[in-house]
Nucleic acid binder design. Sequence first.
DNA 1: TCTGGGGTCCTAGGACCC
DNA 2: TCTGGGGTCCTAGGACCC
Length: 365
Amino acid sequence: MDRIIFHVDLDCFFAAVEILDHPEYKGFPVITGADPKKGKGRGVVSTCSYEAREFGLHSGMPISKAYHLCPHGIYVRANFGRIKEISTQVMNILNKYSPVFQQVGSDEAYLDMSEIAKDMKQALEIANNIKDEIQSEVGITCSIGVAFTKSLAKIGSDCNKPNGITLITPENYKVILSPLKITRIPGIGKKSKIYYEKHGFQLIGDFFKIPKHKMIAKFGDRGRWIHNLINGNEERKVHDSSYIYHRKSISKERTFYEDTDDYQEIIAKITDLNDKIHDILEKRGILYRTISLKVRFKGFETFLRSKSFNSAIRNQKKALEVVLDLYQEFYSKKKKIRLIGLKFSNLKESSKSNQKKILDFIKQF
DNA sequence: TCTGGGGTCCTAGGACCC
DNA sequence: TCTGGGGTCCTAGGACCC
């Protein structure tokens, strides 16, 4: 029996939240992201409304370029407090429709509807209800992909944007996928696109022409993965509510307003990032075993250096010592630095925080 | 055009152990 | 004397996603 999976994707979510809070922005190009500073700003577009896309803008585009293409746009910094609030409202609605639910980021979720919808016709009705409820209760639109695997549902939610529903079934998947560019496959990005195009593959349909054994002979494990994904041969489950997510790392990085070789400024930034991360680690009762320093030079050349301890610790002073030690290698290069970043990984919950969790749990009874 | 910040996952080489 | 094979850990780099 085929499964029924929904992928719900909120339409240009960050910009939609701005428009919700400022109805007068509706119908105009709204861009969230870095401060464009009259075309001299650093950073990128985070999300933009469909009106802004008319000017060629898209997420990830340098904000300076966006400003040149669309100088009269409404440029705002993302309001993360409101984004979190609205996101929670939407996720609570979605979770009502199925207990087998998985949120991805602030604006996406998967629902396993296999036990709830008896066929595709009913699934389509439910998808419509979800869309209507989010629209009337929250005031924003979403797009939904309905399919028999997670990856196909995700591809589906992108097919009819904004505010659309796409049904992908074992009967129609080849017809729907064939004309799509290969980058619509989640996991194939810029680099893979160039690689596969060199081998003559531009559309997903080009992959359908090659039998599985030839895909494997040509591209190895990647070939097997692509073949399985586009043919709906995939078992990945939608995590249910009992699934406990353990984050694997916690990091902070900052791009300087201007590239710098000022030792004091760089040390001050490293110290600041270290302090901020330790605040979070302390609040959440997290220990780490590995510390990494990221350095990006002028021109975007990027390096990572890391050091691991034998056992998990949380020691702000020691961490700073280690990071400054890792930094020495780069200081001697005498090159201007664009970005500095710190990452803590191999995380472990401190026994104290575990004890607290157990106590909280017992208190319920 | 000139590239944010927060993450995850994968690969590959070298050290080390049995 | 001229070099096995398997496993695990650490480090560095990179692709990709939201």
